[in-house]
Design a protein around this nucleic acid. Structure first.
Lengths: 254, 254
DNA sequence: TGACAAATAATCAAATTCAAGCAAAACTTT
DNA sequence: AAAGTTTTGCTTGAATTTGATTATTTGTCA
């Protein structure tokens, strides 16, 4: 077996079992314990596994990169449904702001067949997905890269997005309540979203049910500024009334 | 069997098996190991397969999101080594440009304990890693999100990076040759790297050996502009001489 | 805390793999 | 058919990898 092949094998075994001993690995890939240890040292050095005495285990699930991958995977099904509902609001020739949320990110692969729309985003993941999946033109906003946010924020970001005026702003939020509307946990995020909101003809908010009744630090915009609200479950009665008063089109993606 | 026919055969065998040894290939296409090695060298040089000791493996197919995750994992070990060598050039209080390469991206987790450095990048993946791993301040450059590049490019990007003047520019390249120096396959990428290069006190180039003797579209900078070159194998004799003439510090990360 | 056992790291020689040089074979061109 | 070019397989020395051996470290239990 080739060296790289064996390391690959070790990686996939380790990934399935969370923990495995050097002895077992040696038997499974037909190599001596010494060789296995050397391989494990390399793999651990490359940050692909975690070594523990007696063997190896998968990376602790809360080390930055991995966590962002996991976060991306939570509630994918609901998010995909909401994204599916959102594509009805896209028209060839128009332009849009996308925030940095993974919810909005789910829309991107569905835009494959569009050729003449423009998307501006401040999210790194969403920018990457745009780069990989679509053929129309997109723009990345500059800004400060702050911890665990995965997006550009700060005055440069606000200044950049203020140069545009787009047809719609697709966004999600950390919390959503009747008095605060869509809101964020950090001022920086909120400032950028507020700027995007003020430069868009239409506001389309994607909120899954877990966000309701959560008020964090500061509001992205007023409830009455929202034009369309896409969610994954029928909202509670008092929300429905408020949405009607605020003249919001509610779409329940089930 | 014709030469090209045999190479084609090798390609399709490699594609099906992911990993294949030189011995096996020799039997399958009725040629000597020496010939197989020569073929593999050609194919790897053309960027069609990846050579590994004892044989060859397929390149990660570069389509879609998955590929970027895989791409991030190919050659990790070599890249990690080069990154390790690069951290000697970081000093508390300084500021740096990072290009969008995964090679340079490998440096980021190693900067964890730095508290007062500044990094400016145009790469989405690298921005994401910075956001997840480090505590110092970083900045994302704006620009066009073009297909399959994973980075901001274009006039906005150039204008943005030109606002800074940093201590060093850490970068990789698609190809590296004696006449063209570090070079790229697209003008857009090259423009951004050239701009970063012109606004940095020091140029630190990370090149793995597969990049040597490849000239693509346009040069990032002249050979003589480079201050430090970090690579994973002892470069060929003529390169060593050229590096010496150009007054480049060569670091072989083994 | 100290001693013991297990695991790991370091060292080394044998085996494998690789690149470069070289001459024979195969193929082209004239 | 002859001369020149390309390709091939072999040989050799260098480099890498491997498993065994020995020293060192680590964790546990008395």
């Amino acid at each position: 077996m080739l060296i790289d092949e064996r390391k690959q094998e070790i990686l996939s075994i380790t990934g399935e079992r969370t923990y495995i001993s050097v002895e077992e690995l040696a038997k499974l890939v037909f190599a001596s314990p010494a060789t296995i240890r050397r391989d494990l040292a390399d793999l651990a050095n490359a940050g692909l596994i975690k070594r523990v005495r007696g063997g190896a285990s998968v990376l602790a699930p809360n080390t930055g990169e991995v966590s962002s991958l996991i976060r991306r995977k939570t509630n994918v099904i609901e998010k995909k449904r909401m994204a599916q509902a959102a594509i009805n609001y896209f028209r060839e020739g128009e332009s849009y702001f996308f925030d940095s949320s993974t919810t909005v990110g789910q829309i991107i692969p569905l835009l494959k067949h569009f050729t003449d729309i423009t998307v501006i985003t401040n999210g790194f993941d969403n920018a990457m997905t745009l780069s990989n999946f679509v053929s129309f033109s997109s723009y990345m906003a500059p800004g400060i890269i702050s911890s665990n946010v995965g997006s550009s924020v700060g005055p440069d970001t606000v200044e950049f997005v203020s140069r545009f005026y787009v047809d719609a702003f697709f966004f999600s939020c950390r919390g959503f309540s009747l008095d605060a509307g869509p809101n964020e946990g950090t001022i920086e995020q909120q400032r950028v979203k507020a700027a995007m909101a003020s430069r868009a003809r239409k506001l389309i908010c994607l909120v899954d049910h877990t966000k309701f009744d959560r008020t964090l630090l500061s509001s992205d915009c007023g409830l009455e500024d929202i034009d369309v609200l896409i969610t994954d479950r029928e909202p509670p009665e008092e929300y429905r009334e408020a949405f009607q008063r605020a003249n919001i089109d509610v779409v329940v993606a089930g």
